[in-house]
């Protein structure tokens, strides 16, 4: 009866001096897989025009119903190469399940996912997780 008890004590004492497996998260970060599905961005083409043509396939395929978009015409082809762009494009990150179906569905490769998973926002309220097109759009010259 005493033997197993002592064995248990020995095991726990041994673990006291083993290095911790903890990652001190805000200071250290683990590497993320290349194909990690994180925050979305809406791509721009070479001329800086939006790729999205507001076909609505991503909205239709989204199983969580997180995407809302509304199309508009662009007769002068300034903001799009097909004459149609998304007037509004919103993703509700309180609903998004990061399945990546929107990326698969997009015929023009306009929406892709990045490896960024830090989507927390300070302050209360879910409305902060409701992201509009300005936030989603690929920054010109960046990213």
């Amino acid at each position: 009866m005493v033997g197993p008890l002592l064995k248990g004590l020995r095991v726990t004492f041994g673990h006291l001096f083993k290095p911790a497996v903890t990652v001190k998260y805000p200071y250290e970060k683990r590497p993320v897989a290349e194909r990690y599905r994180g925050r979305h961005i809406l791509k721009l083409d070479e001329d800086g025009r939006e790729k999205c043509c507001a076909c609505g396939l991503c909205e239709a395929v989204c199983p969580a119903g997180a995407i809302t978009l509304y199309g508009a015409e662009d007769p002068e082809f300034k903001r799009s190469d097909v004459g149609k762009i998304a007037e509004t494009y919103e993703i509700d990150y309180a609903r998004c399940i990061f399945c990546g179906y929107c990326v698969d569905a997009c015929p023009r490769g306009a929406i892709i996912m990045t490896t960024d998973y830090e989507l927390t926002v300070p302050g209360p309220g879910r409305r902060h997780l409701y992201k509009d097109k300005d936030w989603l759009l690929e920054k010109r010259g960046g990213e």
Partner: peptide, 13 residues
């Protein structure tokens, strides 16, 4: 701290 290190964690840091 002891509980942390026994469980291979760091405890309060």
């Amino acid at each position: 701290k002891v509980s942390g290190h026994i469980q291979d964690r760091l405890g309060p840091y």
